[in-house]
Design a protein around this nucleic acid. Structure first.
Lengths: 331, 331
DNA sequence: TTGAAAGCGGTACCAT
DNA sequence: ATGGTACCGCTTTCAA
């Protein structure tokens, strides 16, 4: 049996309260008392029970972190950074993986809501209202999504699209496709909107394909449609779709960047390893995870940042071999 | 404020005890009572506070899950499966990422130990004794590692090596290298041991290189050494090393599978996407994560499996383009 | 500065 | 079958 505060109190010859104080507010007890307590603590190897503390303080020292798919390198990277930062705050992370299911997202939040002090949510699928209501008044930080005035951290999707399109325009491309990801995804909608606006602004013809599932198979499935649209370049919702496109293109004898240029989003490891390597819009995963925890920690400490804090993280185009000059004649 | 059991009791016009029973052991209360409780529960949107429950039962409904690197697709896959299974048991998962640091592994376990009912540990680096002592008598399931009599789930490393070597031998390779991963890794030691034994058994010359860090750079760094050893095939500790090898080989004008065959471990997504695709020993991530939770759940329910349960998961060789017949003459 | 005691929200034992 | 109540380990008034 682990030692409790009572054991410490008895051994130190003081009351529970004093032990509690000695630990939480050392300057509220006489040095002599503090020392006796400290000795007893050391001798018993006492560590406060966070559960019990949680019951009386209403705080658990644990935060919930929800992602749609931990096997997706983007989220894995974000979670990893968040983990590291949480440790510095002494917070534990309750991970939840919603498998990209809107219903599961809400479910998970609901069941976890009682055991955490707050949430960092990457929940692209659930509806706005459900999301807001399910969180109650628990501190919440949204990742990669905007809902009402909730504090959020997002990648600059519009700027990512802008960089990608500018790159393609400079290479002489005039007709460009965007392969959309899940229709319900907030991020997808943002990118699509930016695609339309920026393409128009640059005087490019924008073609839209999709929606497809955000994976390799999704890219493969839509590749022939993209080809039939007669574009010389395509921007995919994410890298996995981009890789699927490249694969199917290759099977059809269409090669990047000679016949068609391809750009993805996320900069997953595989993008740098394939041939040709995939040009991609990289998002700072580390910063994102870290900033998410920082923001939530502030919220937890009532060190209120102005309601509706919206951090925007820079997107960065990484040019690799999959993009090149537009072919002289369209296939 | 969320509703408590008292609110439910008052609304239903029964005692706390009855509410508690109606929820935990429905057949111990009269149907009429149960219904009144259920209605009150529904009306108030009551959900039991797991923290409070934990305090009196001594169980939290939460388990700790430790991995060396959540950004590694192998662990991401395992965690994902574990997550899903945990949900079915109504268990929450406290994730911990040790960043491959032995000290962090132990640290994390120590701080989490009070808030969880048990652990699933993938802690390849920490020492045996520290590991055992830090867990105290908390139920623990070890992944991919064996320490004393602790219940464990491991991939059949020896058989994976055997399949890989048999494949290479059948292709006519006579001199084969093994590129070792981290020296302190239990898995690495197992594979190295198997490599020696099986190579000898098959009459192959075994060459050992390494130890290198288990990533792309590690593979690149050791590639020239491997080449200098005059082997026609190489088995890497994991896929990322294998991909690094292939990359550096390519830069030297040495191509797979023509000049040298390459086999990795783990079947990460990138392995299937690169050219040539990497032959790899696949480990059933889903089964592993699932089995880990199943085993731990049994332990938690005192449904004791015989102490020292050791589940072994089958390895499976996935032959892709990176392995082929041995060249007629060594470079 | 210290100690006693009342909770925090449940569970489970003991009566009834 | 139900209600009363002690208790889980800790925090936090309130008095002393």
């Amino acid at each position: 049996m682990a030692a409790t505060i009572k054991d410490v109190a008895r051994l130190a010859g003081v009351s529970q309260s004093s032990v509690s104080r000695a630990l939480a507010a050392p300057d509220q007890v006489r040095p002599a008392t503090r020392e006796r307590v400290e000795r007893a603590v050391a001798q018993l190897g006492y560590e406060p029970n966070r559960i019990a503390r949680g019951l009386s303080t209403g705080r658990t020292g644990t935060i919930g972190f929800l992602v749609p798919d931990i096997a997706n390198p983007l989220f894995a990277g974000i979670v990893k950074a968040a983990q590291r930062r949480s440790r510095e705050f002494g917070l534990a992370v309750l991970l939840a993986d919603s498998d990209e299911e809107p219903a599961t997202e809400l479910d998970l939040i609901r069941t976890l809501t009682k055991q955490v002090d707050g949430f960092v949510l990457c929940a692209p699928r659930a509806g706005d209202d459900e999301l807001r209501s399910v969180c109650g008044d628990l501190p919440v930080v949204l990742l990669n999504r905007r809902v009402g005035q909730l504090p959020s951290i997002i990648f600059d999707n519009a700027d990512g699209i802008r960089q990608a399109l500018a790159h393609l325009a400079a290479l002489g491309h005039r007709r460009v496709a965007y392969v959309a990801g899940p229709r319900t995804s907030w991020v997808n909608r943002e990118r699509l909107r930016a695609f339309r606006a920026v393409a128009a602004g640059l005087g490019l013809e924008g073609v839209e394909a999709g929606n497809v599932s955000p994976d390799f198979e999704g890219g493969v499935a839509v590749a022939d449609l993209v080809l039939a649209a007669g574009v010389t370049a395509v921007i995919a919702y994410n890298d996995m779709i981009g890789l699927g496109l490249a694969s199917r293109f290759g099977a059809r004898g269409v090669t990047a960047p000679g016949d068609v240029s391809i750009i993805g989003f996320d900069d997953i490891p595989a993008s740098a390893l394939v041939t040709p390597a995939l040009t991609t819009v990289s998002q700072p995963k580390d910063q994102c995870g870290r900033a998410g925890i920082d923001l939530l920690a502030d919220l937890l400490n009532d060190r209120d940042r102005p309601s509706g804090t919206r951090t925007s993280l820079p997107a960065r185009l990484i040019v690799r071999a999959s993009t090149g000059p537009a072919p002289a004649t369209v296939r």
